[in-house]
Design a protein around this nucleic acid. Structure first.
Lengths: 105, 105
DNA sequence: TTGATACGTCGGAAATATCCGACGCGTCAA
DNA sequence: TTGACGCGTCGGATATTTCCGACGTATCAA
């Protein structure tokens, strides 16, 4: 019943790790689950969240399901961050100025 | 009892909006709360989450508390995304290839 | 001092998230 | 066909999140 919210999908460390794993190539569910200290149902439910956020895609191969990474929705997060990039580089520059100031004393 | 987790802090749309608002400058709590359809305690608790994630800093001014944006922890998210940027540009390029292929038909 | 304002936080309600065991369905190998 | 495997999903337990009203504390204006 939840919406496909990319930010919410990324809020869980297991789901973030799944995405990192999938960079190396598609993986079947049991294969993925063996890497975590979690049961298969839990991993399967995490994959459902990632699927709803369109961050992964499933490819059935016989009785297995290989999950593929689809990183495109991550651009939403990237775009959101861009609203701060300028400001935070500004702040980093200001911080450096302070540090320079301090080191000159 | 929760840790200062930047990803979790960003998972809530109210908190994301608070951060966007604070780009324009520091704001007092009631001032912030009036912008949302939320009571002050709720906003105050969102600010606590953001404070634990070190995304905001408080500056007491008399009986008010002005909250300042500190975007530096966002670099953690940015760094995490960088683990995908290359891959996803690759995927976008592949997508464009497919589209080119299609349009040539 | 007195009354109003700004805020944090507690207690509790309601919703949501996380996880597991159990079950059912489709697929494979024999 | 039979039995084992891979998977999704349901029911339910537990934990966490989100929100509010109520309260206490500090500050301000008069």
């Amino acid at each position: 019943m939840s919406e496909p919210d990319v930010f919410s999908a990324l809020s869980n460390p297991v789901r973030r790790e799944i995405l990192l794993q999938l960079r190396k190539g598609p993986r079947a569910v049991n294969d993925l689950a063996s890497g975590f200290n979690l049961g298969r149902p839990a991993v399967s439910e995490h994959l459902q969240v990632l699927r709803k956020a369109r961050l992964v895609r499933e490819e059935p191969r016989g009785r297995e399901r290989y999950y593929h990474l689809d990183p495109r929705p991550l651009s939403e997060v990237d775009d959101w961050l861009k609203a701060f990039t300028h400001y935070w580089k500004q702040r980093l520059a200001a911080l450096e100025d302070v540090l320079d100031e301090e080191s000159r004393k």
